[in-house]
Design a binder for these strands. Sequence first.
DNA 1: TTGTTTTAGTAAAGCGCTTTACTAGGCGCA
DNA 2: TGCGCCTAGTAAAGCGCTTTACTAAAACAA
Lengths: 370, 370
Amino acid sequence: MTRSSRPGNKSAESVVTLKFLAEYLNLSPATVSLVINKSPSAKSIPDKTKARVLRAAEKFDYRPNFYARHLSKKRTFTIGVVVPEISEGYAALVMSGIEDRLLQDGYFYFVVSHRGRQDLIEEYPRMLMDRAVEGLILVNTPLHRVITVPTVAVSPHGHLKGVTAITLDNHKGGWLALEHLAKLGHKRIAFFKGQPGSADTESRWLGVCEAAAKFGIEIRPELTVQLQGKSRHPEPSTPEEGFLHAAKLLETGERFTALLAFNDMSAIGAIRAFCDAGYNIPQHISVVGFDDVQTAAYQNPRLTTVRQPLRRMGEAAALSLLERIANADVRPREILVTPELIVRESTSAPATDEPGSPTVLASREALAEK
Amino acid sequence: MTRSSRPGNKSAESVVTLKFLAEYLNLSPATVSLVINKSPSAKSIPDKTKARVLRAAEKFDYRPNFYARHLSKKRTFTIGVVVPEISEGYAALVMSGIEDRLLQDGYFYFVVSHRGRQDLIEEYPRMLMDRAVEGLILVNTPLHRVITVPTVAVSPHGHLKGVTAITLDNHKGGWLALEHLAKLGHKRIAFFKGQPGSADTESRWLGVCEAAAKFGIEIRPELTVQLQGKSRHPEPSTPEEGFLHAAKLLETGERFTALLAFNDMSAIGAIRAFCDAGYNIPQHISVVGFDDVQTAAYQNPRLTTVRQPLRRMGEAAALSLLERIANADVRPREILVTPELIVRESTSAPATDEPGSPTVLASREALAEK
DNA sequence: TTGTTTTAGTAAAGCGCTTTACTAGGCGCA
DNA sequence: TGCGCCTAGTAAAGCGCTTTACTAAAACAA
């Protein structure tokens, strides 16, 4: 039924084994192994013999059985990557960075996506360790069990002993976004906060609050909405969510001239909702996102956002994981990555806030007027 | 240096082996193995003993060494996925579908991305097979060597003997897009074609051409641009590319009232370029994309496009690969997936084409006018 | 000539698990 | 009492490779 039960299968993998090669060459498997691995203890073997072995290996296209090798050597050159969701831009970009480094060093990786399910978040790392991964990279994943292999977390949720963290300076990111709006002259700003319980969210929000304090801007609860507030764990963020929340925000009738969104996806959804309601961006409402996803620069209007260098973060994760694998003494540490404000077209100074001016009064009238 | 050379490592994986367990239980490894695997030949072992074994396994958190197991059983429950580029929306969505099915069945997968480099396209499948993957899924990847494990190609480039193909009915997709524009009344249509040499491109283009013939629309070379024409193999498609080509198209001064783009990314870029040049979409130019990427519905204007059910295609790929692995007799086949036209806001009837009407005359004047 | 090194390898154990063929003891039955 | 059969396991080979300790022969030195 399975391949394994069809022995006549000449063409399949590793028909040609070390032993076969040895017999063909009239040498012992040991010798062949030593030569092929260029082992230092093969130094007593004359070059002529070495060449003979290598030629035979070539001829028969000998490929060592990876699994057998592991059994003796205890190395798998494999690591595990745990992400919330592959199809999401965030994880995909980080993975892309991870992959670069990993493949360069001869490592392969397994990917698992847990979609926020806590049971899978606990289960998958175990399964990966069963497969003898030499390390783990957790992307934006709230894992609280302790891991016994070197681990690196990208955007960690909380702190785990012994885990290297690659963290965006969210505090600064939040600050930058708010500063930008403040300097443009916005006073009444609406906010999309991230899901609670993640370090990202907390620290980004702190940055926003501190900047708000500094620039004398009030953070109004009625203008602050929590994304992904329902489930304890993050669904991938979608434009839909931003769309819905933005529409609700308009319905409350509260006035605001700008929206500071937790990420680009929700910003994109929000812009859609604002436009549908008849507002112009940025004339009526400025919107700033977070992440700088691939399409941000091609939105209409182009999205002002805080760039997160996700690919570089992935690379950094892979790099420091490999370091830790190669050298057990390397201490886990915190790597802080700096965000960058990218000003595009979705933000501008607010319309002057005088009676009769076109400052936004979001309300059913406004909607109806359209 | 490596983990393997630090034997005192109690907490690490598989300190507790079958043998250890057997000694602890005063049983032979054979017995323990039989019980743990619920092997049929364990039927002569009394339930009491079985329970004892299971309890001990539980107690010591025994986890069989996956690699050792493979060595006897010849199963790896691992497959390889080859994609052009992870960060791209296309591959990420397909992968997401693949993953669903695979993990459900206890399979893991390696991902490699070749970024269009032909050497890697040849190299990676070998490396994957060295790792004893039981099958391969090629996503949108031009591989021409014959593979010795069951293989499924999603959007295959050309036909490989023995490879199951998951193909979008591109012919129909092309037809749908053109038919839509034609029925709206467009006569002068610009086209972005995909990179040459891919079956996707050819057949989609054929669909376009046939529909054009049917509806009496002329396909003008001067309005037809080839995406990714430079390199023989696909770079991931970006909005940039569409932006550039659209800008060039405007510069030629050729008149057109609609653009049929090869994919959403290039459509998004093109819309950006048109807007920058002062045109309104769809009043001045209608644009239809292809793929229906996540943000398509949130573009401004919302993008009319032909939906490719990528996630489902990924699922189908995984499913039929698993079938072929489980049953060597399953013949490779062609699975045709149907595209769907999603009409949104980026298309409308063209402005009436009379003298003095606002029909687009793309030219330097038009650009200057802005 | 004898002893010492060097050369050119090899034998064999071991990695952790699976699996098949086998056995020792107990029991029923004629 | 003897035979076969069932029960409860076990022994041992094998998966393909690595590695260390060892050896036989040749080359060299004194």
